Amino acid sequence: MQETQIKVLDRTLDQAITEKINGKTKPLGSLGQLETVGAQICRIQHTLQPKLEEPAILVCAGDHGITQEGISPFPQEVTFQMVMNFLAGGAAINVFSRQHNINLLVADTGVNFDFESTPQLLNKKVAKGTRNFAVEPAMSIDQCKQAMQNGADMVTKLHQEGTNIIGFGEMGIGNTTSAAALLCKYAGVQPEQACGAGTGLDQKGIQHKAEVIEKALKLHQAITSPLEILACFGGFETATICGAMLKAAELKMIIMVDGFIVTSALLAAHAMQPQILDYCIFTHQSNEQGHQHMLSFLRVNALLNIGMRLGEGTGAAVAYPLIQSAVAFINEMSSFADAGVSNR
Rank of each mutant, 00 (worst) to 15 (best):
P55F: 03
A269W: 09
D108I: 12
L31D: 03
A268H: 02
A127K: 15
T224A: 15
Q203K: 12
L9C: 00
K247R: 15
E116H: 08
K209S: 11
H270Y: 15
N287P: 01
V78L: 07
A88R: 15
M294Y: 02
M333P: 00
L277I: 09
A181E: 01
V189W: 07
I102W: 01
F233C: 13
M154C: 11
Q275A: 14
H46Q: 15
G205V: 08
C42V: 08
N112H: 06
T177C: 10
S178M: 12
A316F: 05
Q221K: 14
Q275T: 13
E69S: 09
N150E: 02
E19N: 13
V300Q: 11
K128A: 15
G32N: 12
G162A: 08
G259F: 00
A222I: 06
L105N: 05
G290D: 11
Q81P: 05
G29H: 02
F282P: 10
S296L: 10
C232L: 02
S342I: 12
M82H: 05
Q40P: 10
A337F: 04
Q33T: 10
H220V: 09
A61I: 06
S178W: 01
H270G: 11
H64E: 03
G62H: 01
L310P: 08
A337I: 14
L105G: 10
E161K: 14
Y186Q: 10
G65K: 06
L13D: 04
I166N: 09
M84E: 15
P191N: 05
A316V: 01
T156C: 08
G174F: 12
A61T: 04
R299T: 11
T224H: 13
P137L: 05
A326N: 04
E19K: 13
G172A: 07
P226F: 06
K51E: 13
L52D: 03
V111T: 06
N112V: 01
S296C: 01
A56L: 05
L182M: 14
M84K: 15
A91P: 11
C42D: 07
A244N: 01
R131A: 15
I21Q: 04
H64V: 00
E237H: 04
L58D: 08
G172N: 04
Q143P: 12
A239D: 02
E250S: 03
L28D: 13
L52C: 00
I255V: 10
T79Q: 01
L310M: 06
L310W: 02
N101Q: 14
P75H: 02
M139I: 09
A271E: 07
E211T: 08
H291E: 03
V8P: 09
P274N: 00
R43I: 06
R309I: 06
I255H: 11
N123K: 15
A326K: 11
C242T: 14
L267M: 12
T109R: 08
L322H: 00
H220S: 12
K204H: 10
D63L: 07
I21W: 04
A197S: 13
F233N: 10
L217A: 05
L48W: 07
A328I: 03
K247S: 04
I57H: 11
G174M: 07
D114C: 10
F115T: 08
R98T: 08
V8D: 05
L58Q: 08
A265Q: 03
T18S: 13
V327K: 12
V126K: 00
D114E: 11
L182K: 09
G198A: 01
A302G: 09
L104M: 08
